[in-house]
C-alpha cells in the first residue's frame, strides 16, 4: 500500500469542490449518443489534472483522453465518481507504475450501481415528492409553489457536494463497500416508502374520474347514480383503477407513451359520447 499513497498532497479541499462545481455545471449539457457524459466528466477534472501534471505534457494528454471515455451515471450521487477518480489520478500522477486502466475500470464499475441508486432516490423519489408539494400550492393559485422546483435543484447541488467530498475522502474501497452493503438498500427502502405514501395521497387528490351513469326507476322516479354507489363502497375506486390499469399497461405492453396516451384520450372521448363520463 505504501507505494500507492500520495506523498505530496497537491489536491486540496477547494480543488475537490472545483471538480464538483464543474461536474454540476457541465451536467447533461454536452451529453451525446456516442459517449454520453464523457465530456462533462473530463471537463470536471481537466483543471485539476493540469495541476497534477505541471510539466508533463504527455502525462496530461493521456489523463485527459482517459477521462474522455464513455461515462454515464446519475449526477447527484454520481458526483462522487469524478471525485474518486481525482483521488486516483492524484496517486497515478506520482506513481508512474500505476495502470490507467485501473482508473477506467473503477469508473465503469461504479457508474451502473450508482445510477440505480441515484435514479431511485433523487429522481424517482425526491424529485417527485418536492415537485408534488409545489403542485399542491400552485393548484390553489399560491405562488409559493414556484419555490419548490428550485429547492430540488439546490438539494441536487448540496447532496452532490457532499457525495463528492465523501468520495474523495473515503476512496474507492470504502465507497464500494458502502454501495454493496445492505445499508444502502435500507435507505432506498425507507425513501421508497415515503415516496409511495406521498404518491398515494397525491394521486387521491389529483387523478379525477367519475361516471355519469345513472338509472331511473320508473315507478317511484328514484334516480340511482352509479357514482354514489361506488362512493359508498370504496371512495375513489375509479381513479385508482385508472392508475393501476396504466401500471398494468406499462408492465405488460412496455413504456409506449404515444400509444397509451392515444388510448386514454380515445376511451375518454368514446365514454363522453355514450354518456359514461
Amino acid at each position: 500500500m505504501s507505494e500507492n499513497t500520495v506523498t505530496n498532497k497537491v489536491i486540496q479541499k477547494k480543488h475537490v469542490n472545483q471538480t464538483h462545481l464543474y461536474w454540476w455545471l457541465g451536467g447533461e449539457n454536452s451529453n451525446s449518443y456516442e459517449r454520453l457524459q464523457a465530456l462533462s466528466f473530463c471537463n470536471a477534472l481537466a483543471k485539476n489534472l493540469k495541476l497534477l501534471y505541471p510539466d508533463d505534457k504527455e502525462g496530461l494528454r493521456e489523463a485527459l483522453e482517459r477521462n474522455l471515455e464513455f461515462f454515464n451515471t446519475e449526477g447527484t450521487i454520481g458526483a462522487m465518481v469524478p471525485a474518486i477518480t481525482l483521488a486516483m489520478e492524484e496517486k497515478k500522477a506520482q506513481d508512474k507504475e500505476m495502470s490507467g486502466e485501473l482508473i477506467t475500470n473503477l469508473k465503469l464499475g461504479l457508474m451502473g450501481p450508482i445510477a440505480g441508486i441515484g435514479d431511485t432516490l433523487i429522481w424517482g423519489t425526491m424529485k417527485a415528492i418536492i415537485l408534488a408539494l409545489g403542485c399542491s400550492f400552485a393548484l390553489q393559485g399560491n405562488p409559493l409553489g414556484v419555490v419548490f422546483p428550485f429547492l430540488f435543484t439546490l438539494m441536487v447541488f448540496v447532496i452532490g457536494r457532499y457525495t463528492a467530498t465523501l468520495g474523495y475522502n473515503l476512496g474507492t474501497d470504502a465507497v464500494t463497500k458502502m454501495i454493496s452493503s445492505g445499508l444502502m438498500n435500507k435507505v432506498i427502502d425507507a425513501a421508497s416508502i415515503l415516496g409511495l405514501f406521498m404518491m398515494g395521497a397525491l394521486s387521491a387528490s389529483y387523478v379525477r374520474l367519475s361516471t355519469k351513469l345513472q338509472y331511473t326507476i320508473e315507478a317511484t322516479e328514484t334516480v340511482i347514480s352509479l357514482q354514489k354507489i361506488l362512493d359508498a363502497i370504496i371512495p375513489g375506486i375509479l381513479p385508482l383503477l385508472a392508475i393501476f390499469g396504466i401500471l398494468w399497461y406499462f408492465k405488460n405492453k412496455g413504456q409506449n407513451y404515444v400509444k397509451l396516451i392515444g388510448l386514454i384520450i380515445l376511451i375518454c372521448m368514446v365514454g363522453a359520447l355514450i354518456g359514461v363520463f
Binding site: 424517482g124 417527485a128 415516496g195 409511495l196 404518491m199 397525491l202 394521486s203 389529483y206 387523478v207 379525477r208 374520474l209 381513479p239 385508472a242 392508475i243 393501476f244 396504466i246 401500471l247 399497461y249 406499462f250 408492465k251 413504456q255 407513451y257 397509451l260 396516451i261 386514454i264 375518454c268
Partner: peptide, 13 residues
Amino acid sequence: GVLPAIGFAIILL
C-alpha cells in the same frame, strides 16, 4: 383528469 395517473403509474413502476 385521468392523464396525471400516468405520472403516478410510472412512480409505482
